[in-house]
């Protein structure tokens, strides 16, 4: 997506129910948004969704937000492998369509 501010929480929920065991939202560093405040919105929304997931009984660690620029390949690799290890440890998402 063009901007982390465009990642709607609907889409995150959708991903979790359609098979993703975790969702990592990566946006530009705070203060460096091309659209001014897209990443601040993303941060707030992820925070709201994490708390809702916790209330519903889903480990909020399945959702994470990180700020990275395109010039930070090594950090990208570290963040994504770290996250994927963490999700593996948590096991499959209990949100996967139960119906």
């Amino acid at each position: 997506m063009m901007c982390s501010g465009m990642v709607s929480p609907d889409l995150i929920l959708r991903a979790l129910s359609k098979g993703a065991d975790g969702v990592l939202v990566i946006g530009c560093h705070l203060g460096e948004c091309h659209y001014l405040e897209g990443n601040y919105n993303a941060a707030k929304r992820v925070a709201v969704l994490k708390k809702l997931l916790a209330f519903a009984g889903v480990d909020p660690a399945r959702l994470r937000v990180e700020w990275l620029s395109s010039a930070e390949a090594p950090t990208f690799v570290r963040v994504t492998s770290e996250f994927s290890e963490q999700i593996k440890a948590l096991g499959p998402s209990p949100l996967k369509e139960v119906a």
Binding site: D10, L13, L16, E97, V98
Partner: peptide, 12 residues
């Protein structure tokens, strides 16, 4: 319904 997504989406 696609549980619990239907209800969590509405909550959101």
């Amino acid at each position: 319904s696609e549980n619990p997504i239907f209800h969590l989406t509405r909550a959101l």
